[in-house]
Simulated scan of single mutants.
Amino acid sequence: MSVQSFDKTLSRKQRLQEKQRRQLAVVDTVDKAEAKARKAEVELAVAVTEAVQVFGDEQSASEGLDMPVEAIRRFLGMAQDEAAGADNVAEVSDKP
């Protein structure tokens, strides 16, 4: 039985439900991948922050990591934003 003849045996409602199920599955997969990418980016930001501390400054870290200074600064900003967000969450959870 081909896919076309199978689709024709389903009602419009069933075809719509199947299409929605597939769409939701794809959206879920993309959401999970975005979350993993975000987590990896934050981990990279933390590693770059540590590298700047070890190398002494942004320029030295840029040379040591073979990464543009602009990228170093972007990751430093991201790490600061994450730290500020974590501080805000801690403050909110500490309030009665």
Rank of each mutant, 00 (worst) to 15 (best):
A79R: 04
G64R: 13
N88W: 02
P68A: 14
G56S: 01
A71N: 08
R15A: 05
M67S: 07
A84H: 06
A35H: 12
A83M: 00
R38Q: 14
K39I: 10
E63K: 11
E43M: 04
Q80K: 07
R22M: 14
T49N: 03
Q14T: 06
V52D: 02
K13C: 06
K39C: 07
L24W: 01
F55W: 08
S93H: 10
L16H: 05
V42I: 15
A79V: 01
Q80D: 10
D66E: 13
L65H: 09
L24A: 04
F55S: 00
V52G: 00
D94A: 15
M78N: 12
D57F: 01
V48P: 03
E63R: 11
D81L: 15
G56N: 10
S62K: 08
D31E: 11
Q17W: 10
R21I: 06
E41C: 04
Q53E: 08
L76Y: 02
V54I: 07
Q4G: 04
V69P: 05
A40G: 04
K36V: 15
S2Q: 10
V48Q: 01
S2N: 07
Q20R: 09
M1Y: 11
G64C: 13
V3R: 08
M67P: 04
A79S: 12
D31R: 15
V27I: 12
V30D: 03
V26S: 05
Q17E: 14
A40Y: 03
G85M: 14
E70R: 15
Q20N: 09
T29C: 13
E43F: 00
I72R: 13
T49P: 02
S2C: 09
R73V: 06
V89L: 15
E18G: 07
M67G: 05
A45L: 12
K19V: 00
F6W: 14
K95F: 08
A37I: 13
K8E: 10
Q23K: 12
R73Y: 03
I72S: 05
K19P: 02
T49M: 02
D87T: 03
Q20G: 02
D57K: 01
A71E: 13
A37M: 12
E18M: 09
L76C: 02
N88R: 03
A51F: 04
A25N: 07
V69H: 06
D87L: 07
A33W: 09
K8T: 05
A37D: 11
A79Q: 03
V42E: 10
T9E: 13
K36N: 11
P96V: 13
A84N: 04
K36Q: 14
Q14K: 10
E50D: 08
K8H: 08
V42C: 10
K32S: 03
D94K: 14
A51M: 04
A47E: 01
A47W: 00
V26L: 08
Q17I: 09
A83H: 02
D81Y: 07
M67L: 14
R38L: 15
A84I: 09
R12I: 09
A90H: 04
E34G: 06
A61M: 10
A35F: 09
F55Q: 00
K32M: 08
A90G: 08
S2P: 09
E58P: 01
Q80F: 11
R21C: 06
D66Q: 10
S62A: 10
L76I: 01
E70A: 14
E70K: 15
S93G: 08
S93A: 14
A47F: 00
M78F: 12
